[in-house]
């Protein structure tokens, strides 16, 4: 657990998954849960230092109550990175973590070297309303995946032999926290701030994401000044799981490319 105190905001205990050495990479997980040591994270950590905090309000990480809005989350991530003594970092955000990653890039342009947004929430298109991620469970489950859902979705959940309800409570806590930023519509004004993103950005999107149609990824790429879009075929909301090879390949390539500047 990393303990972090931000004056006038709050105190946080954060569970950080860390692996590898080299250039630092911050991975921000999606609305459902931290993926634990999933294959794509381990592979990204092969030639860099991956830091994947479990965000406050999810799993075992605390301090969620201190957040008034999404700007507090961005401030939290800025301070968390600073607490590691890191002053420049690549950021990969998936799903709701994509919204947080983009907000961090706006708030702390000096900190974010390169930005990768993977099936990111944060925008709303009137012409193509996205499915309610809190709608009927079977409908949401089907929308998330291109193919058959994996037997066990990557997760950092650890069963507690003494608590038969632990899994229910884990999920209830995670999704409950997500409602703060995604309910009733996952739009907290990011559209107005995306043009301020300085970092070169890669927008990655699963072609069959039923939660966020590909048009949402196009909109991210249009609004961010220096952005490129990579649509991965045969992948839904979790391209890093369904197309791990392709995902690791496009992200690694983007992160190792020389800065144009």
């Amino acid at each position: 657990m990393t303990t972090l105190e931000i004056p006038h905001v709050g105190a946080f205990d954060v569970d950080v998954w860390e692996q590898g050495s080299g250039e630092p990479l911050l991975y921000l997980h999606g609305y459902e849960r931290h993926p634990g040591g999933a294959g794509f994270l381990t592979r990204l950590a092969a030639d860099r230092r991956v830091l994947a905090p479990e965000q406050p309000g999810w799993g075992r990480s605390t301090g969620f109550e201190a957040f008034v809005d999404v700007h507090d989350v961005a401030l939290f991530h800025r301070e968390l990175v600073a607490s590691w003594g890191v002053d420049r970092i690549d950021v990969v955000g998936h799903s709701l973590g994509g919204m947080f990653a983009a907000e961090l890039a706006v708030l702390a342009p000096q900190l974010v070297r390169r930005l990768v947004l993977v099936d990111a929430f944060g925008l709303w298109l009137d012409d193509e309303p996205a499915l309610d991620p809190f709608g009927p469970a079977a409908e949401v489950a089907a929308a998330k995946w291109h193919g058959t859902p994996p037997e066990r979705e990557p997760s950092n959940f650890v069963a507690d032999p003494d608590d038969p309800h632990a899994a229910i409570l884990f999920s209830a806590r995670n999704l409950g926290s997500a409602t703060k930023f995604m309910w009733p519509i996952a739009d907290r004004g990011l559209r107005r701030r995306l043009p301020l993103v300085h970092a070169p950005t890669l927008v990655v999107h699963g072609a069959s994401d039923g939660l966020l149609p590909v048009s949402y990824a196009h909109e991210f790429a249009r609004l961010i000044p220096d952005a490129r879009l990579e649509v991965l075929p045969e992948a839904g909301h979790y391209p890093q799981i369904e197309q791990e090879d392709a995902f690791v390949s496009v992200v690694s390539e983007f992160l190792t490319a020389r800065d144009a500047s």
């Binding site: 809190f134 709608g135 009927p136 469970a137 409570l169 999920s171 209830a172 806590r173 995670n174 999704l175 409950g176 926290s177 997500a178 409602t179 703060k180 309910w183």
Partner: peptide
């Protein structure tokens, strides 16, 4: 609808 009766976050842990 079941989804309308049980949104996450409504009940505390």
């Amino acid at each position: 609808g079941l989804e309308f009766a049980t949104p996450p976050g409504y009940n505390t842990l």
